[in-house]
């Protein structure tokens, strides 16, 4: 399946776009997405943390993804 991933902050610079269309196996989970992205873009491995958000909430590692999900890559946050 193909998922759309929104990118922010440093991940936007590492991947070089603000949106990424990304190919994943059917029923892939958050862990698989993160491992795959870190393999394709090794600079992601150097970040303090990297989370996935699905439909405006932080996702758990075992959460299964679907093509309809609004997925975002969340590097370390630092508002305020």
């Amino acid at each position: 399946m193909q998922v759309k991933i929104a990118l922010f902050g440093i991940t936007k610079e590492i991947i070089g776009a603000s949106k990424l269309n990304y190919q994943l196996s059917e029923k892939a989970d958050v862990n698989q997405l993160l491992s795959s992205l870190k393999a394709d873009y090794p600079a992601l491995q150097k970040l303090t943390s990297l989370m996935i958000a699905v439909n405006d909430d932080y996702a758990t590692p075992e959460q299964t993804l679907s093509a309809h999900d609004e997925i975002a890559l969340i590097p370390p946050v630092c508002g305020g």
């Binding site: 922010f8 946050v77 508002g79 305020g80």
Partner: peptide, 13 residues
């Protein structure tokens, strides 16, 4: 403010 800094998806350069 403490919780905002930990969880709200905002970044600064």
């Amino acid at each position: 403010i403490d919780t905002l800094k930990q969880v709200v998806p905002i970044w600064k350069k």
